[in-house]
C-alpha cells in the first residue's frame, strides 16, 4: 500500500507509561502521531475485548504498556495484563492477526526518552509489516 499510515492503538497506564509520554512531550521529544494513546488506570484493566475491538475496528497494531514488574501502582495489575496478552497472542494469530502486531512493554514514569524511542521503533516495524488484515477485510 502506497503511503501507508499505520493506526496503532496504545493502552497506557496512568502511573507509568502515560506519565512517560507526558514527560516525552514536556521534553519536546517527538514520536509518530500514528500512535493513539488511550490512558487507563492500570494495564490490569485492559480487558481482552478492548484489544480485540481495536483490531476489529482496523487498528494495524496494539500496544499495552504499563509499569515495570514490582512497580505497579496497584501492586500486581501488570502481571495480570501479561497473562492476558499471552492469551491474546495465542488466539489472534489463529485468525490472521500476526502476533507481532500486539506488544506489551514496561515503560516507567521517568522513561520519556525510552517511550519516544520505542514508539518510533514500533511504528517503523508496523510500516514494514503493512496494513493489518482487519483493515482490508473488515470483521462483520
Amino acid at each position: 500500500m502506497e503511503n501507508f499510515e499505520p493506526a496503532i492503538v496504545a493502552f497506557v497506564c496512568n502511573w507509568c507509561t502515560y506519565t512517560a509520554a507526558d514527560l516525552a512531550g514536556t521534553s519536546r521529544l517527538s514520536y509518530p502521531d500514528n500512535i493513539r494513546l488511550i490512558r487507563v488506570m492500570c494495564t490490569g484493566m485492559v480487558d481482552s475485548q478492548y484489544v480485540i475491538k481495536a483490531f476489529l475496528e482496523g487498528a494495524d497494531a496494539v500496544i499495552v504498556s504499563g509499569c515495570h514488574p514490582g512497580d505497579c501502582h496497584y501492586i500486581n495489575g501488570n502481571y495480570k495484563a501479561r497473562r492476558r496478552i499471552k492469551l491474546l497472542k495465542e488466539i489472534l494469530p489463529r485468525f490472521g492477526i500476526d502476533r507481532d502486531r500486539l506488544k506489551l512493554t514496561w515503560i516507567g514514569a521517568s522513561d520519556g526518552i525510552e517511550f519516544a524511542k520505542l514508539m518510533t521503533r514500533f511504528n517503523d516495524q508496523v510500516m514494514e509489516m503493512g496494513p493489518c488484515q482487519t483493515r482490508l477485510d473488515r470483521a462483520i
Partner: peptide
C-alpha cells in the same frame, strides 16, 4: 478460519 475473511 485462518483469516478474518474466512472467519467472517
Amino acid at each position: 478460519t485462518n483469516t478474518i475473511e474466512k472467519l467472517n
